[in-house]
Computed example of a mutant assay.
Amino acid sequence: MPEGDTIHRAASNLHRALAGETVVRFETVLPPLARVDADRPVAGRTVEGVSARGKHLLVRFSGDLWLRSHLRMNGSWHLYRPGERWRRPRDAMRVLVETRPWLAVGFDLPVAELLDARGLARQPDLARLGPDLLAPDFDAAEAERRLRARPAREVGEALLDQGALAGVGNELKSEILFLAGVDPYRTVASLSAAELAALVTVARRVLLEAVAPYGASAPTWLGGRRTTGRSNPDERLFVYGRAGEPCRRCGAAIRLGRQGPGARVTYHCPRCQPPPGGG
C-alpha cells in the first residue's frame, strides 16, 4: 500500500498540473461516480486544488464538489499530455479528469467517490484519521495522546493505525522504529513519555525527508525512499527487506517477524532496538 509520502507527492504533482484549469472532460466506469456526475457534471468546473490527507487523495472542484480516492494496494494516478500514450491499459482506467494541458487518469482505484463539503466532513475514513505527519499544522501532542490511548498495542502495529497518526506504511514503519531505537514488539504502554515523543518526532522527520527529495528544488530524482541518506540504491534502507543481513550500524543480523491480525512484516535490529531491559 502506498505510504503517506507517495500520496503527498502524487497530490503535489496533480495540483501543479491541474489547479486553476477547467475540466473539459470527465469519465468514469464507476457507477456511483457516474450517477453524481449525471446530476452535477464535473466538466465545466475549475480544479481548485489537489491535496492529500493521510493516504487519501482529494481533488477539489468549484461549486462544492470533491473527488476522494484511496489507492490501497494497486491504485495509481498518472498524468499525460493530450494524445500521449498511456502506460496502463484502457480497461484499468477508473476515473479520468481532462483539462486542456493535462489528462489525470486514476487506474485501478479501489475507492473513489464524489462528495460535497458536508459529505466530506462526515466521511468515516477521513473523520477517524489521526494527525497527518505531513500536514503543516501537524499536532504532535495529539498524535502522542492517540498512541497512548492504545496501550496494549505493539508499537509496530500502532504506527500503522491511521486513527492514531496518519501516513505511515509498512516500509517506513520498520525504518522509523530503527531510527528511534525502539523494539517493534514493545507495547505502547511500555514507552516512556520521552520515548513516545521521540518516536513521533522521528516519524514526522522520516516522512518529510521521504517527500523532500522529490520537490521542485531537487536537481535529480534518485528513486526510492532513502532513510540512510546514501546514494547507492542498494544501501537506501536500514532494515526493511534485509532479513539476515548485517545491520548497517552494528553488524547484527536483521530479524524478520510478523505483527498484527494482518501478519504484516516487520524488520528490526535486535542490538540497536533492544527490548526493555536489554534482554
Rank of each mutant, 00 (worst) to 15 (best):
A263F: 09
A152V: 05
T22N: 01
G260H: 06
S62M: 05
A121H: 14
L120I: 03
P31Y: 02
L133C: 06
P270M: 03
P261V: 07
G260W: 07
L96P: 00
P213D: 00
V155F: 01
R122D: 03
P233V: 10
G181T: 08
N74P: 09
V59K: 11
L33W: 02
G119M: 04
R236N: 05
D116G: 13
N170G: 14
V265L: 15
S174T: 03
G229H: 12
P213F: 07
F178L: 02
A198E: 05
T220K: 07
R258W: 11
E142Q: 10
R148I: 01
G244V: 12
A17Y: 03
L207G: 00
A34C: 10
R249D: 06
M1T: 13
A197N: 08
E154D: 09
P233E: 12
E209D: 14
G215I: 03
G241N: 01
N170Y: 13
G260Y: 04
R60P: 03
A253L: 01
G4M: 00
A180S: 05
N74G: 14
C272E: 10
A263D: 15
R205M: 06
P2H: 11
L179H: 08
A135L: 09
M93I: 15
T220E: 03
R81Q: 10
T22G: 06
M93R: 10
A117Y: 02
N13W: 10
R204N: 08
R9H: 11
L177W: 04
A43V: 04
P246F: 12
G224F: 07
S174V: 14
A19G: 06
F26M: 07
L30Q: 12
E171V: 14
K173N: 11
A121P: 00
L96Y: 01
R100M: 09
A11W: 07
L237C: 02
L103P: 00
Q259R: 11
L115A: 01
P274A: 00
G257F: 11
R249F: 07
R68C: 06
Y185I: 08
S69K: 09
G20Q: 13
G279V: 09
V206F: 08
G75K: 09
L256K: 11
G241D: 03
A34P: 08
R258A: 13
T99P: 06
G279C: 05
L160R: 00
R145S: 11
A17Q: 10
T187V: 05
P275N: 14
G181L: 07
P131H: 04
W86G: 14
R205Q: 14
L222H: 14
Y240L: 09
L147G: 10
A19F: 08
Y214F: 13
L133P: 11
D132H: 04
P246A: 05
L79Y: 02
G54N: 06
D108A: 10
Y185W: 12
P110Q: 04
A117M: 07
F238A: 08
L129F: 13
